[in-house]
Nucleic acid binder design. Structure first.
Length: 390
DNA sequence: TCTGGGGTCCTAGGACCC
DNA sequence: TCTGGGGTCCTAGGACCC
């Protein structure tokens, strides 16, 4: 029997979270964003969406569409906390949960649904519990793989439950326009249309992936398989973050040396705090520099040793900035660290070898010599293990 | 009315080594 | 006095997603 995967997507998550903090906002058009004049909408409530307000829209544009819009500054720490509670709720039914982002997850419910008379009863119960206990509305997609589950949860919002079986793909998926496909964005969609691919069905019927290679790269064949409803990706249950960054857009374009230092100092402090919270350090440091014309440069450097301290982050950021800054007005600065590893992991590995090198090698050579004299076959790894056990 | 912030993944060129 | 091909690492840029 095939798998039963759920994709659970919290509807207007930030807006729901704000309602918990301030119930008087209920039923009103609200948008969560920063408060500067350069902010964009992170999430709009459904009331605001009726006016055409949507994510990534500049606040000023949103206000012109909906003058009574209430703009709320986000409370990200609270969202993180609420998101963790959401994941804990899902984990009551299965340990196989992949957190895909702050407001969505995949869950393998193949086992859990057996406890229910009908598979959909589980989806319905989970949806009701999240709504009653956490005041979070969600849409659930039920399907045999991740791609179909994700597409299914998108089909009915808010509070929808959509089942998408493999055999329903031609009817439910293929008529959708190509830009509805995950991974086909506003740059790629026009290129696909030029090739005559207007719908997901058109993509599914491509027999020669090579013709899409220039557009989709090495993923061409994978996209075609997805369009046919095939996807064998496993759930990734431990969220293993690959990079962490901290950036900010300035209220006004500026470029004073002192201000840049102060800003990088603040970004380095915040990034360092987050890295330590997650027990992460990294060896690839980058700065992003965006000028007033939106021209953006990212400059990075591979470091010989992993770093996580604020002073180290600040120092490398200033170096990269000074080496690359083109002396024109700035609008955005950021620091990012990737190639991450665990701070503690690293410490433990070092502990294994923290016998001074000369001592260790001296002892190793001695031991190997003895073994040679005796005609034995002790490997260097075996010697190391023995010397550590002592 | 211009265009946030935090991520992931892919491509491509050049350096460098064998 | 010029020349190969493969592999890996580093760096820059960009598409896409939430």
């Amino acid at each position: 029997m095939g798998k039963v995967l759920f994709h659970i997507d919290l509807n207007a998550f930030f807006a729901s979270a704000e309602l918990l903090l301030d119930p008087s906002l209920k039923g009103k058009p609200i948008a969560i964003s920063g408060l500067s004049k350069r902010s964009v909408v992170a999430t709009a409530s459904y009331e605001a969406r009726q006016f055409g307000v949507h994510s990534a829209m500049p606040i000023r544009e949103a206000l012109s569409l909906c003058p009574q819009l209430i703009v709320v500054k986000g409370h990200h720490d609270f969202y993180e906390e609420l998101s963790d509670q959401f994941i804990r709720y899902v984990k009551r039914y299965t340990s196989q949960v992949e957190k895909a982002s702050i407001d969505e997850c995949y869950a393998d419910m193949s086992e859990a649904i057996r406890q229910f008379r009908r598979p959909l009863d589980l989806a319905w119960q989970l949806q009701q519990e999240l709504s009653a206990d956490l005041h979070l509305k969600c849409s659930i997609g039920v399907a045999p793989n991740k791609f179909l589950a994700k597409m299914a949860s998108d089909m009915k919002k808010p509070m929808g439950i959509t089942v998408l079986r493999k055999q329903e793909v031609p009817v439910k998926l293929w008529p959708l326009p190509i830009e509805e496909m995950r991974g086909i964005g506003k740059k790629t969609a026009p290129l696909m249309r030029e090739k005559g691919i207007l719908t997901i069905g058109d993509l599914a019927h491509i027999t020669q992936p090579e013709i899409l290679q220039p557009i989709l790269g090495k993923n061409a064949a994978i996209f075609i398989r997805r369009a046919r409803g095939e996807d064998d990706r496993e759930l990734v249950c431990e969220s293993d973050v690959k990079s962490m960054s901290q950036s900010t857009t300035l209220n006004y374009d500026f470029s004073s040396d002192e201000e840049v230092r102060v800003l990088f100092r603040r970004l380095a402090d915040r990034l360092s705090r987050r890295l330590m919270e997650e027990d992460k350090q990294g060896t690839l440091a980058s700065v992003s520099i965006r000028y007033d014309d939106f021209d953006t440069h990212v400059r990075s450097r591979k470091l010989p040793q992993p770093i996580f301290r604020a002073d180290d982050l600040f120092e490398i950021a200033m170096e990269l900035f000074d080496e690359n800054y083109e002396d024109r007005p700035l609008r955005h600065l950021g620091i990012s660290l990737s190639d991450l590893s665990g701070i503690h992991e690293q410490r433990q590995q070092m502990n294994l070898f923290d016998t001074p090198v000369q001592e260790a090698t001296g002892e190793l050579i001695e031991r190997l010599n003895r073994q040679l004299e005796q005609g034995g076959h002790l490997t260097t790894a075996g010697c190391l293990a023995q010397s550590r056990r002592k």
